[in-house]
């Protein structure tokens, strides 16, 4: 990872996303800040409904404009994403930043061939002819290791298996050499063997092309495989960040700890799996204090009254909890809290 002081690829500052409807306001993302350097892979981990997808969509400006209220600063490669309009926005999407979705079954247009869908994207961003776009599409399908790519170019999405469709999605996303790839659980809908193949492919392509990547997943194993750094999200907030090593082997936030100990490992036979008691808070009425407080074994009255600050634990390592001790300097935080 780079420690240079040049502008990071992604810089998110105090991102808030609210969904406003007549009945209620859903606080889907609250004060999220994160940074991704060029060529770095950040994994966002968190349970269902924690705001991972909403954060990704905010970065691509894909949220419904009428209902989603977005505030904060979003910058990709120095560009203010929230200020983009019309042509600039279209050039940014797919050009600077591309996104891969969870469901390969429904993410492609069923009435156009795979080749067409890639070619029109290439044409859009490079201004080349459709035929040149198709030639590039073939190249890309070969790049993502689609067997008999030439034939698959003229295939409709329903004629491909889930794994191949997701490869086609990756080809589509990479078609204009984006600097940033957002992957929203790209392997969750695939079966285990295919999942690993796709994961290895993505890691390899990311390194070859030197892209930055934000990879959303529920799966800690996947995070361990692909991430440089990890951000843990809970109820629309980032509760802990650090390198993949630090977070997975030495978690600081009680939620991260709970999550790790409730994960099934290979050698856990006969042991009890500890599930975190309770359920995540209602995003329409977040508690005033720590949102994990009501479920936390270490929480006291202080935790329930006040929102814990982000505590710096070291270089790029922080946790949002009263019970962790700030690192005195850039050194790593030694003692495990309470």
């Amino acid at each position: 990872m780079t420690t240079e002081t040049k502008t990071p690829l992604v810089s998110v500052r105090d991102l808030n996303v609210k969904f406003v409807s007549r009945e209620a306001t859903v606080n889907a993302v609250n004060d999220v800040s994160l940074t991704v350097q060029h060529g770095e892979v950040l994994c966002i981990i968190g349970e269902s409904g924690s705001g991972k997808s909403v954060s990704m969509r905010a970065l691509m400006r894909l949220l419904p404009e009428r209902r989603a209220v977005i505030s904060g600063k979003l910058a990709v490669d120095g560009q203010d994403v929230l200020a983009l309009k019309g042509k600039e926005l279209a050039a940014f999407r797919g050009g600077e930043a591309a996104m891969i979705f969870q469901e390969p079954m429904t993410a492609l247009d069923p009435v156009y061939t795979v080749g067409h869908q890639i070619a029109e994207t290439v044409r859009r961003h490079t201004g080349c002819s459709f035929e040149e776009g198709l030639a590039r599409a073939l190249e890309l399908l070969e790049l993502v290791k689609v067997p008999s790519a030439k034939r698959r170019l003229n295939a409709f999405p329903h004629e491909l298996s889930g794994g191949l469709r997701q490869r086609a999605m990756i080809a589509l996303a990479l078609s204009c050499r984006p600097k940033l790839l957002l992957a929203d659980e790209p392997t969750t809908a695939l079966d285990a063997t295919v999942q690993i193949q796709v994961l290895i492919l993505m890691r390899k392509l990311q390194q070859e092309l030197g892209m930055g990547m934000i990879f959303v997943t529920h799966d800690l194993g996947v995070a361990a495989e692909i991430a440089d750094r990890v951000a843990v999200m809970y109820a629309g907030r980032i509760v802990e960040t650090g390198t993949v090593q630090e977070v997975l082997t030495d978690p600081k936030h009680p939620y991260t700890k709970g999550m790790l100990s409730s994960t099934v490992h290979g050698n856990m036979r006969g042991q009890d799996i500890e599930a975190i008691p309770g359920s995540p808070p209602d995003l329409r009425a977040l508690p005033t204090g720590c949102s994990f407080g009501p479920r936390c074994a270490f929480a006291d009255s202080h935790c329930l009254e006040q929102l814990p600050p982000e505590v710096m634990l070291g270089n790029d390592r922080l946790a949002r909890c009263f019970k962790v001790d700030a690192a005195p300097a850039a050194a790593d935080a030694g003692s495990v809290p309470a």
């Binding site: 894909l62 279209a90 797919g94 429904t106 999605m169």
Partner: peptide
């Protein structure tokens, strides 16, 4: 309401396309 429309936006197509 289908997912692929989001893909079309995400890949940078204009509304007319």
């Amino acid at each position: 309401n289908q997912d692929f429309v989001e893909t079309l936006r995400a890949k940078g197509l204009m509304e007319a396309e």
